[in-house]
């Protein structure tokens, strides 16, 4: 009798603990959900295919999606401030094809690589200045960036250009092996960018200002935070990430191609939202976005394993995006009601 009441009491206490944990970390719940879905996807694929969760597939997952991870880092910062950056896909195409073209023209990689990353940052700066100083909506300002990047990519070259530079190919072909696991310099680059981004967002003044601006720009300004600088800087960072992603994608495919990355901005936004970042700004985690990218990559891999049409990837990602925003909506509504 007393034992059973104690058991009930313990169970209540456990659920009480769980409830306080959930309410204390409400903003992290979508990210946890993404992580759960990622794990479930892996388990499901493992059961279905028998041999899915192997070091080889998981290593390839990071390798294939390294450029998406880098783009997602910049995009997360922009979205947390309450903005959006549609230009990342075409910035990536522009910097990628420029990289291939400049290397082809005989310029050394030491100059080309920083050059294209800075070029990406400059397009980001243009978008940021339009947003902050000319009161242009982020959607329209980054649309100008999208057109600019895509057009410039075609100005550089209409055809794909092969890359034969050893330094750039080294990024892709080198494999550091740990048993069956391996990682390429592009993968390391993506991880470093993601960790750096997460550190900046969590522990620096700039990072906390990003959250403050997204939460309530007016309040952030009244608190004396550097709102203008922060808002311009997130677009610059997103542009720099676009430049870096262009390098990684060029190394990955061994060539620059001006039609690369059409629609990539949407894949990135989808991955960021699946990773738990609210599009209204103020809430989001870079590591969550990385999980979002991995979920996206896993779906792509599963579909190619099943031999189904790749068009299913977009459909499933679309549906997943839908379920995530509905869940987020429910969370937001409940939080508002509690207030």
């Amino acid at each position: 009798m007393s034992q059973s009441t104690m058991a009930i009491g313990r169970r209540e206490r456990v659920s009480e603990h769980a409830r306080t944990f959930v309410s204390r970390h409400a903003s992290m719940m979508p990210t946890f959900a993404a992580l759960l879905i990622f794990v479930l996807l892996l388990i499901g694929a493992q059961i279905h295919f028998g041999e899915f969760v192997t070091p080889r597939t998981l290593s390839a997952l990071l390798l294939d999606n390294a450029y998406l991870v880098i783009l997602a880092v910049g995009m997360t910062m922009v979205i947390v401030t309450g903005g959006i950056d549609l230009s990342v896909g075409s910035v990536m195409a522009f910097t990628g094809i420029s990289c291939a073209a400049l290397l082809d023209a005989g310029y050394p990689a030491v100059l080309v690589v920083p050059g294209i990353v800075v070029a990406g940052g400059l397009i980001g700066l243009l978008v940021g200045v339009l947003v902050q100083y000319f009161d242009v909506q982020p959607f329209i300002a980054s649309l100008a960036g999208l057109f600019l990047g895509r057009g410039l990519a075609f100005v550089v070259s209409l055809k794909s250009i092969r890359v034969e530079d050893d330094a750039v190919l080294w990024l892709q072909t080198t494999r550091y092996r740990f048993g069956d696991w391996y990682i390429t310099p592009t993968g390391i680059l993506a991880l470093v960018v993601a960790l750096l981004g997460a550190f900046v967002m969590q522990y620096t003044r700039f990072g906390r200002t990003i959250y403050a601006v997204g939460g309530n720009e007016q309040s952030a300004r009244l608190m004396g935070l550097a709102v203008a600088r922060t808002k311009v800087l997130v677009y610059v960072i997103s542009g720099l990430c676009g430049g870096l992603a262009g390098l990684v994608l060029t190394a990955y495919s061994g060539a620059g191609y001006p039609r690369n990355g059409i629609g990539t901005e949407l894949d990135v936004i989808a991955a960021v939202v699946i990773g738990g970042t609210l599009l209204t700004g103020g809430t989001g985690y870079i590591l969550g976005s990385v999980i979002g990218v991995l979920v996206y990559g896993t779906i792509k891999t599963v579909i190619s394993y099943m031999g189904a049409e790749q068009s299913w990837t977009r459909i499933i990602v679309g549906l997943m995006l839908l379920s995530f925003i509905v869940v987020q909506r429910v969370i937001v509504v409940r939080a508002e009601r509690r207030r």
Binding site: A270, W312, R314, I315, V317
Partner: peptide, 22 residues
């Protein structure tokens, strides 16, 4: 459902072309 228009229509933008391909 009062979802932000950008994201609500993004769902169909992503999935629609896939459906058309099917």
């Amino acid at each position: 459902l009062e979802i932000q228009p950008i994201i609500a229509t993004l769902v169909l933008m992503l999935a629609g072309r896939g459906v058309a391909l099917l």
